[in-house]
């Protein structure tokens, strides 16, 4: 196994671990805001690591660039949808766990 493949495998495994942690977070966290945190932050990092791992194995620079573009667009859309969902939840009166909602 070449060092490049080892590095790629390490990235992929770390990405998978982050995805797993994010999924557990979505299932286990108490309220919608915490779950959003788990979903967006951790999934972005997970996807980023997976993309980095795959880019190391890709045959050409063009493929690697395309992979990073996928990550970039997921980053953009998840950052915005996270804020939009959180705002919608706040407007509908979802109370943060352990907190109080301002009247």
């Amino acid at each position: 196994m070449s060092p490049l493949e080892l590095l790629s495998a390490a990235f992929l495994l770390a990405g998978a671990a982050f995805c797993l942690a994010g999924t557990v977070g979505v299932l286990r966290f108490p309220d919608v805001y915490c779950r959003l945190h788990a979903l967006t932050k951790v999934d972005n990092l997970g996807l980023g690591l997976v993309v980095a791992g795959l880019a190391l194995q890709s045959a050409s620079w063009a493929t690697a660039l395309k992979l990073f573009l996928v990550w970039l667009f997921v980053l953009i859309s998840s950052a915005f949808t996270c804020q939009l969902i959180a705002r919608a939840a706040l407007r509908r009166g979802a109370v943060p766990s352990g907190g109080r909602r301002e009247p």
């Binding site: 667009f73 953009i76 915005f80 804020q83 705002r87």
Partner: peptide, 13 residues
């Protein structure tokens, strides 16, 4: 501002 920025970023793509 939120949706406006999203629209500005996504439309060219």
């Amino acid at each position: 501002p939120l949706t406006g920025e999203l629209f500005r970023m996504m439309t060219p793509a």
